[in-house]
Each structure stands twice: as C-alpha cells, then as structure tokens.
C-alpha cells in the first residue's frame, strides 16, 4: 500500500514543477521590484526648465508634503499618452507633481510642456547620464514615485499612470500617507 503512493511521487513532483513554470509564463519580466522603497529620495539639485519660472528641483522640495515624482522626457512616446492623466491629477489638487525631465534638452522639454500642458509644480532637468534618475533607480520613462512627507520613497510605478492606476493604486497610497 505504501509503495503505491511512492510511485505517484514523480507525478506529483512533475505537476508541482508544471504549476511553477506555468506561473512563470504569466509573470511580467519587466516588473523589477525596486530596492529604493522606504529609502530617502536621493540628493539632487536639478536645473529649471527655461521660462517655467520655478527654481528647478531639489531634494528639499520633496519634504514637508506627500509628492508624486514623475520621470518624463520630450523624447518619450509613452509620456504623451500619460500626459492627459497627469493634467487631470493636477486639476484635482490632491498632490503636487514634481517632474524630472530625464535625458532631455531643456529647450525641448520646455516646448513639450508648452504644447501638451504643464501638470508639474516643479520641474528639474536631469541631462544624460541622468545621475538623479539613476539614483532613483529609474529604468525607463514614464516612471513615477510617491514620496512621503519625510522625503522617503514609498512607492514606484513603472509605466503610464492612467485612471485605473491612479484611482486604484496611487490615490489610496497618497491618501494614507497624507494622514
């Protein structure tokens, strides 16, 4: 009787492996867990975009309130798709959006915002090789971070923020951190 079950062991092992690999098929290999979560936002002192009237973006600007840091660039195709959603978020006046214009020519960045609308409270330019963005652990644009009142990174979103991402993922986290 004991032996009968022993013969089933390879089948059980096989089914276990099958389940393991099947799950692997549906995982997103681009979703790399960020190691920056709960770490303080990196030291940065980024220059302003021409004609925007702010003083650029510094680490200190991320302290004292919850903020949404958004990595974008005038060269970034997906950022065009994300932009209307950022404009909507700006209109809700729930959280300041801080832009990092990544690997961009400041003039191109400024023109891009003039054309598409400007959802940002502050924008800093991070020219190649993008020290500030690398310090954030950025792998592409658009990418967004929620930074808490103490200036610590609490959440990273890779890719476009749309209505669903905003209302189901980002907004609840921001509300919680604003308490």
């Amino acid at each position: 009787m004991k032996n009968r079950w022993a013969y089933l062991l390879p089948v059980i092992l096989f089914l276990g492996l099958l389940g393991f690999f099947t799950r692997g098929l549906f995982l997103d290999p681009r979703a790399i867990p960020s190691v920056m979560i709960d770490k303080p936002a990196p030291q940065m002192d980024l220059a302003a975009l021409p004609g925007r009237g702010d003083t650029g973006l510094k680490t200190e600007h991320l302290k004292g309130q919850v903020s949404l840091v958004n990595i974008f660039g005038s060269w970034c195709v997906s950022c065009v798709a994300e932009h209307p959603y950022l404009m909507k978020i700006k209109a809700q006046k729930i959280v300041p959006i801080m832009g990092i214009d990544w690997r961009d020519d400041p003039v191109q960045g400024a023109l891009w915002l003039q054309k598409n609308g400007d959802p940002y409270d502050r924008v800093g330019v991070d020219p190649a090789p993008g020290h500030a963005s690398v310090d954030f652990g950025v792998t592409g644009a658009p990418e967004s971070f929620i930074v808490d009142k103490e200036g610590r990174i609490r959440y990273k979103h890779v890719g476009i923020i749309d209505d669903r991402v905003w209302s189901e993922i980002l907004l609840p986290i921001i509300r919680e951190l604003q308490k």
Binding site: P29, R30, A128, P129, G130, T139, G140
Partner: peptide, 20 residues
C-alpha cells in the same frame, strides 16, 4: 542592461546602458 534585460550594458545600445 535594465531595458533589454538579457544583454550586458557593454553589449546594449539602449540609452540607459550608455548612461550606466
């Protein structure tokens, strides 16, 4: 290279690889 994932940064032409 974090964009192309299975290439090293030396092999990749991606902008991020160049930055790194």
């Amino acid at each position: 290279c974090l964009v192309c994932q299975n290439q090293s940064i030396d092999d990749s032409d991606a902008d991020l690889a160049k930055d790194l």
